[in-house]
Amino acid sequence: MSFEYGTDYYGYRKKFAVLVPSTNTAVETEYHMMKPTGVVLATRPCNIPAMEVKTEEDFVGMVEAIGAATEQGLRDAMSLSPDHVIFGYSAETFWDGKERSDREFNKYNDIANAEGNCGITFGAQAIQDALACYPGVKRIGCISPYMPVGDSMVVKFLSDIGYEVVRIKGHCSPGPEQIAHETSLKTRELVKEVDGDDVDLILQAGTNLHFVELAAQLELELGKPVLAINALTFWHALRSNGIPDRIRGFGSLLAEH
């Protein structure tokens, strides 16, 4: 009996490489919660140290460490011949606004295309595409695990693409690993602080902050879109690869768009 190789056993629809900082646990966990049958996720690290983040300078150093590890992580991921690569971090994709973000996206997308004949999903660009699904939205409340310098980069990027950030609050988590230790209760309090009648939509950044299930609950409670970064990037990867499945339980984006 003859046999032809060419289709991954579990990833018979699509095989996604998922690049995450080596300290990250939330992306892999939440993607698997949302994953449709026939899609396989191969998580690969961009190696960074388990650093302390006590100051704004520490936070910038963490972002720079992720950026420095990304290209090697992407090239390593090409060995599994992915159909697509999802960048499972967000702060570095917003840094210095849309112009730099577009340059970084094009750089990594070119590498993925040249070495693996595939495309990428980048946090900042996924946000732009996702927000376009909500045409009435102009004013946004944002939450994150970041220090204020990181929050300012979220505000700059959103301003560059035409949205007003009414309020933004961050956990100021004391390290990249500890972001995943933040509780839903604390995160709910941040949402309460940034929400109001003057806010059309709540957006969460920071991929190691568990939020996809809470976002779905908050949408029902608040009566407005609440978008989690991990749901946005996973949605973008699915739709970019012709997978239209409506996935419920993680917010309106995956369920309705």
Rank of each mutant, 00 (worst) to 15 (best):
G119K: 12
W235L: 10
I243C: 11
G251P: 08
V18G: 05
C133F: 00
E4A: 10
C133Y: 02
G170T: 02
C142T: 03
L190H: 05
P82N: 08
H210I: 07
R75D: 04
V39E: 05
R239D: 00
K192A: 07
I127D: 14
I143K: 02
G123Y: 04
G223M: 07
L74K: 09
L222G: 02
S2I: 03
R44P: 00
Y5C: 06
R100A: 14
A26N: 04
R246C: 08
D198T: 03
E4Q: 04
D76M: 12
V53I: 15
K54P: 01
Q217A: 11
E99N: 09
W235R: 14
D200S: 09
K35R: 15
V60Q: 14
A180C: 11
S79Y: 09
R44I: 11
K14Q: 06
E177H: 04
P145H: 05
E189V: 08
F105H: 15
K98D: 06
K224P: 11
S152W: 01
L190A: 06
L158W: 05
G136I: 00
K15R: 13
M33I: 00
L131I: 01
A112W: 02
N208F: 02
A112M: 03
A26T: 09
N117T: 00
F87M: 15
F59H: 09
T37F: 14
K186D: 01
I111M: 07
D245E: 09
E104H: 06
V165G: 10
V20R: 13
